[in-house]
Each structure stands twice: as structure tokens, then as C-alpha cells.
Design a protein around this nucleic acid. Structure first.
Length: 272
DNA sequence: CACGTCACCTGCGTGC
DNA sequence: TGCACGCAGGTGACGT
């Protein structure tokens, strides 16, 4: 899926507009909701969802971990893109004023009073949307944001030593820290010169400090480059051209020239 | 608690 | 060309 930098990029585009769409969805009022794949909606039931969301105005849009957080008039819409989700804003009608047909894999759409519509497209159908009164119902269990100032080097070291787990699976555990996925975890571990299978409670203070700063470095670069665009899920970013290890098995390490190895950790392709 | 496995889905590349 | 298989940015429910 989109990881933190990709979700952040999508949030910024929807908020500020970019390229073809210079308009923001902030301030738009929902006229109509169209649910094209029922399981995309985690909660509430479709009929209730439609009833509740019509008339709501988008107050703000932010990101928490890999979730998009739409603050509405008196509810919160949360969307998780999982592996293949994407969001776009478009005019809901063509030049003749006829409703524009949906695209393949469109799963949920919100039509606005200004004629625009927000569409959630998700090839693999793993993505989910929640409409809730209190966002903590869905987000409450998430670990800290990687850039949170309260996440100090001391706190991070203490978090790593509170359990004994393989480093990579723990970094990808959203309870531990929110936002890292397969790409950025591999990149951060490489930058910090740490092995994905190292045990968390054996990490030295120096290594844990290096790791936290590597996490922030790779996520920051990902955001600056508007995320990574892989395969058919193109979103405009170009971080994919700057990976050090991810997807580069057999190629030389940019630091030492040793061929990059691919192994499997927790069922995920892992590059060292 | 830590870890492995499977499930949820569609589509693309590879090799036979 | 057809087809099987492996692989993919994520997560959650199990079983051991």
C-alpha cells in the first residue's frame, strides 16, 4: 500500500489541489454517496452511512499513520488505502452535463454540491472506510507518529527494549509506530545498517538512535519526492527511482557495492 | 507474548 | 496463445 509518505502526498493533493485539479475538497458539502463495493465500508451499514454523510461538509483533511482522516461537520470519515487504494477528485459530469461513468475498480464516491466528486478506487478491494463519531474508535490503538517530538531517542530505545522481537516485523507493526510499511522499513534498516532479523532488545543505544533518525530520513525523503509510484498504481511521486535496496535484489549496494540480497521476513520480501 | 500461516483480492510478469 | 505460478506498498484472525 501506500505507506506514510504516499498517504501524506494524497492528503496534501486533496487538500491543496495540484496539476489538473487546483481545487481543494475542503468546504465541499456531500450531496450523494455511491457505494460500489459493499465491503469497502467497514462501518456503519450502507443505508445508515448514506443517511449520515449526506449534508456533511468537509472541515479538514489530515493523516494519522496510513489513515486519511476527513473531519466532517459532526462526524469523521476514515479511509485506509491498504495495498492498492487511491483517491481522486474529478468533475462528476461531462461537458453535456451527463453523469460521468465510474472507472474500473472504483469502490466508493462522494458527490459534492459543487459538481465535483471524491472517488476511492481500489483494485484489490482491501481498502476500508469508516464513518464514526469519535475517530479514536478506529485510530486509538496506533503507535506514535514517526515525527512526533515526544518520540525521543530515549523513548524509542525504551520501546525497543520493552519486547524481544525481530526488528522488521516490529517496525511494521502499527501498534509500535504508525506509518512504516515494507518499502520504507527496508530503506530505513539499510540506512541505519541494521539487520531486519536483529532482536529489538539487543539493539544498542547508538543503533536505536541511528534507526530513529534513519526512519525520519527515509520518510522525509519520501514525502519530499511525493511518495513512490510502483506498477500500475501511479500517483505522481518519484521516490521509486531513489530506493537503495527495495526491489533491487542482485544490484550493488549504493554504499558498499555488495549485491543486494532478498530474503523473506514475516511473509514479506525483504532487501538487505 | 512471539511467530508462522492463511485469508482477503486483482493483475502483472515469467516460464513452460 | 494458454496457463500455472509467484509476486505485489497491508492487516487481521488463527494456531502453536
Amino acid at each position: 500500500m501506500p505507506e506514510l509518505p504516499e498517504v501524506e502526498t494524497i492528503a496534501r493533493v486533496l487538500r491543496d489541489g495540484s496539476g489538473d485539479y487546483q481545487t481543494s475538497i475542503i468546504g465541499c458539502q456531500v450531496n450523494q454517496a455511491v457505494l460500489l463495493w459493499a465491503r469497502t465500508l467497514a462501518t456503519p451499514a450502507p443505508g445508515i452511512f448514506e443517511k449520515l454523510i449526506i449534508g456533511q461538509t468537509i472541515q479538514s483533511l489530515s493523516r494519522r499513520g496510513k489513515f486519511l482522516v476527513f473531519l466532517l461537520s459532526d462526524l469523521t470519515l476514515l479511509i485506509h488505502l491498504r495495498m492498492s487504494g487511491d483517491m481522486r477528485v474529478e468533475n462528476g459530469h461531462d461537458e453535456a452535463g451527463n453523469p460521468k461513468p465510474f472507472e474500473k475498480h472504483d469502490r466508493l464516491a462522494l458527490e459534492f454540491n459543487n459538481g465535483q466528486r471524491l472517488v476511492f478506487n481500489d483494485t484489490r478491494k482491501f481498502g476500508r472506510a469508516w464513518l464514526v463519531k469519535d475517530p479514536a474508535e478506529v485510530l486509538g490503538w496506533l503507535g506514535p507518529e514517526p515525527f512526533d517530538e515526544l518520540l525521543t531517542t530515549d523513548a524509542f530505545f525504551e520501546m525497543l527494549h520493552r519486547r524481544s522481537r525481530q526488528l522488521k516485523p516490529l517496525l511494521m507493526d502499527q501498534h509500535f509506530i504508525a506509518g512504516l510499511g515494507n518499502i520504507y522499513t527496508d530503506e530505513a534498516l539499510h540506512l541505519a545498517k541494521l539487520h531486519p532479523l536483529a532482536l529489538t532488545d539487543q539493539i544498542t543505544k547508538e543503533a536505536s538512535t541511528r534507526l530513529l533518525s534513519a526512519i525520519r530520513e527515509v520518510l522525509g525523503e519520501g514525502i519530499r519526492r511525493n511518495g513512490a509510484s510502483i506498477d500500475w498504481v501511479y500517483r505522481g511521486g518519484d521516490f521509486q527511482n531513489h530506493f537503495s535496496v527495495y526491489g533491487r535484489a542482485g544490484s550493488p549496494c549504493p554504499i558498499c557495492g555488495t549485491p543486494i540480497e532478498r530474503l523473506v521476513v514475516g511473509q514479506r520480501g525483504t532487501h538487505i
